[in-house]
């Protein structure tokens, strides 16, 4: 049993934390790229900015400023610091539901990001700054996993994380391979940049060796069963957590949607797919993730009272 508002807040903590971590990685890869080759760097910066939904492609020519704003601009609701502030604000609202260990991790990240030294720390070493946030967010996940009861609240937290993750990876892949005007990226430097943005470079190399190909990247990031950032892996977790939450609620709506999406990826014809079919599947994934989000909200949080009043 858990308050509807509380479940909603935990779900959003998961989403914002996942988003912040993803943005950190995007910013880091973007800044790192500028150190090597200027042409490809602009392409990587374009991918990163497009993946976070920034329409202003001119920013790609000054990646440092773009990364700085993405990290620390509090006016921008999509910045890393805004995501973390929102995660922490939600955590404050459910302070009684998360353990002190979990809260402390998130509060610490927030204090660091909003403290007076943040801008200087970023200027002194942007890569180290972003790495520290990612490492702190891993500590947050670890604290949640190790200290919170793996009950309903924890499931809503993870549901938010995995739903956000599936959408973020889906959007990133769409930017790289689904843009009909530009065509799929095939530059080696940009492709490894994409793998880095997904935190997938090392696991990919172990699986496919240094043979970096668009089709294999898509296969790995969409259909791999074990890689925690593949869409298939994420949808399997979404289904798992929703099934458990729905069992106690007695409502199968969102669970049905999640099960269908999971099956789509699990039983996809991986051997015979190409970049064209991938684009179709990615669109379906994004649409169905949005549908699951709406359905979760309507089933667990903003349900109509008439249906639930005692007789």
């Amino acid at each position: 049993m858990m308050l509807a508002r509380v479940a909603d807040s935990l779900y959003w903590i998961g989403r914002y934390v996942e988003r912040a971590e993803h943005m950190c990685r995007l910013s880091d890869v973007m800044l790192n790229a500028t150190l090597d080759r200027t042409d490809a760097a602009v392409q990587v910066a374009r991918i990163a900015l497009a993946a976070v939904g920034d329409k202003n492609v001119d920013k790609a020519s000054s990646p440092y400023d773009a990364a700085f704003a993405l990290a620390l601009d509090r006016q921008d609701p999509g910045s890393i610091t805004s995501s973390l502030a929102l995660a922490r604000e939600n955590a404050r609202q459910v302070r009684d539901q998360i353990t002190t260990e979990t809260w402390e991790r998130l509060n610490l990240i927030y204090l660091r990001m909003t403290g007076p030294g943040a801008a200087k720390a970023f200027a002194d070493g942007s890569s180290a700054f972003l790495h520290d946030i990612i490492a702190d967010l891993h500590l947050f996940r670890g604290a949640a996993d190790a200290t919170m009861s793996h009950g309903e609240g924890w499931r809503f937290l993870l549901l938010g994380m995995y739903l956000e993750r599936a959408e973020l990876i889906g959007r990133l892949l769409k930017v790289c391979f689904g843009d009909a005007r530009r065509g799929p990226i095939d530059d080696h430097f940009a492709l490894t940049g994409l793998l880095r943005m997904s935190c997938a470079l090392e696991p990919y190399l172990r699986r496919y060796t240094a043979d970096v190909q668009p089709r294999l990247i898509l296969e790995f990031l969409m259909f791999d069963e074990d890689f925690p950032r593949s869409i298939r892996f994420s949808t399997a977790r979404i289904e798992e957590h929703l099934a458990a939450a729905s069992r106690s609620a007695g409502h199968a709506g969102p669970e049905r949607l999640a099960g269908r999406l999971k099956a789509r990826l699990q039983y996809a014809d991986v051997e015979n797919f190409d970049l064209g079919t991938a684009s179709t599947i990615l669109n379906t994934v994004l649409d169905e993730c949005a549908a699951i989000h709406t359905s979760v909200y309507e089933t667990f949080v903003a349900y109509s009272l008439e249906m639930r009043l005692p007789a």
């Binding site: 049993m1 508002r5 309903e152 939450a245 009272l305 009043l309 005692p310």
Partner: peptide, 14 residues
Amino acid sequence: HDNMVYMRTTTGLR
């Protein structure tokens, strides 16, 4: 409702 106080939980009113 009906002079009873409930809270909205994920599994309905309590």
